[in-house]
Each structure stands twice: as C-alpha cells, then as structure tokens.
Amino acid sequence: MSQTSRAEGRLPAPPMTASRRLSSFFATHRKLSLTALLAAPLAWLVLIYIVSLLLLLVTAFWSTDSFTGQVVQDWTLGNFTAVFTEALYRAVTVRTLIIAVSVTIIDVVIALPVGYFMSKVAGPRLRGALVVAFLMPLWAAYLVKAYAWRTIVSPHGLLDSLGISPGLGLIATIITMSYIWLPYVVMPVYTGFERIPDNLIEAAGDLGAKGWNTFTAVIVPLVWPSVIAGSIFSFSLTLGDYIAVQIVGGSQQLLGTLIYANVGTGGNMPLAAATAFIPIVVIVIYLTAVRRTGALKNL
C-alpha cells in the first residue's frame, strides 16, 4: 500500500530537469508561452498567405510589355476592365458558378441522408464501415480519381457501353467534382447529425411531432451549420479547380483554366491576377451571405 511508504517519510520531489525548468518558466510567463506557441503559424499565415495575396492584388494593376512579354510595373486598370467587360470572362464566370453550385447541391443532397443514416440509424460497426468507405477516396490521388472518371465517361468507356454516358463536358465535370469533394461535405454533415442528442428527437416526438415535423423543425435547423460548413468546402474547392475540367471537361473552360492559361501559354501574369479576383470576390460574397444567416455562429 502506498500509505505505508508515505508513513515512512515524505516522497522526494520530482528532480528539477532542464525541461521541467522550461515548462515552469512558460507556466509563469503566459504571454511568452503564447507567443512561442503562435509565432510559427502566424508567421506562415502572414508571410506566405496574406503577403502573397497582397502581391497578387498589386500585380493585377501592372501590365506586360507586348513585345518582350515582361511584366511592366506601370499602374493600370486595364486588366480589370478586360476581366469585367469581356464576354468570355462573364461566360466563364457564370459557367464556373453553375458548376460550383451544382456540385454543392449534389453533395449536400447526398450527404444529408447518408449523414443521418450513419449517425442515427446504423449500428457502430456499419457506421465505422461507412465512415471508412466515404473517406477512402481521400486516400487515392486526385489525378487518379479524375482519370478514373475520364475512363468511365469517355467514348467507349463504361457508361458509354451502357448507353448513358454524358460524354466529356460540363456534366462530366460536375459528376467528377461532386465525387471528389463529397467526403468534405459528408464528414461535417455526419458530425453535425452526431452532435444532435437523440433525446431532442425523442422530445419532438413526445410533444406530438411526427417524422417530417421533427425533421423540418428540429433536425434541419440543428444540422444546418454543418451543411453550410460542408458547402463552403465543395463550393470553394470547385470554384478554384482547374485540373478535373481539363481531364473530363472536353474543351470547356472554367475560371481556373482561364487563370492557368493566362499565366502559362498567355504569359500574362497581371491579367491572370485580375482574373483570380473573380473567385475571391465570389467567395467573399458567399461567406458574407452565410454569415448573414447566422450559421457560422454555431459552427
């Protein structure tokens, strides 16, 4: 018994090692420990992320020498004028938005019943299996998944042999991106359902609410913030994607491919930077709208 050893004399204090001294120093200097903790991630965020975004913004106001192709640091609004007035940019923006919204709707529509089933209906074993099944695609490389869909939808591919292939194009892009981003929507929605206590659903039934009433009046409002969180993923990831569309989209262009073309073949970095502002503005509008609904408060 420990009581006897205690009775024979006090136990020695733990030895004062260097690491102990360090931790007691940080324990008594709260601000220093906070600084040490946050310095690296903050530096990364500020230097690499915010500064490079600002550089992008600045670049958008420069132009290129039409003869040498070099960036010339003359201030101009020409790039923005081009982006906001040319029909090509408007058409591509609308097309990209349609794809991002479609992908988001498809993923949410799949994630809602799946998340509900996983958290509230399935037993622990089936739940585990389903979580793995929905996360498994994340283990495969992006390109592999995109090319897999290409073989499925391309002429003489699997769907074509069944006679139901949409062919390469916008529909195929929507299908592929819905597939690729699905885990990012299913997981938050699933945990959102998981966080709804069963007794709230019981309480609704107890007060006389049948299935549909309980669903609309209790379950949907409570899971909504998670749906929004998932939609931010699928919406923003689709908005910025430029690879899948090149693989399954046929000749279709999206904002991502347009930026890519401006930087690469076009060699016009300032124009690419100005184009990049379209998805940034769209995302800011989306997040503001989401914030208005109050959904972010419950995240």
């Binding site: 019981e202 609704a204 419950n298």
Partner: peptide, 9 residues
C-alpha cells in the same frame, strides 16, 4: 427529460 432536452435553436 433528465437533461431537459430543450431545443437549443
């Protein structure tokens, strides 16, 4: 209910 089960929203 034991933990009241009030609707948080």
């Amino acid at each position: 209910f034991q933990d009241y089960a009030l609707f948080p929203h």
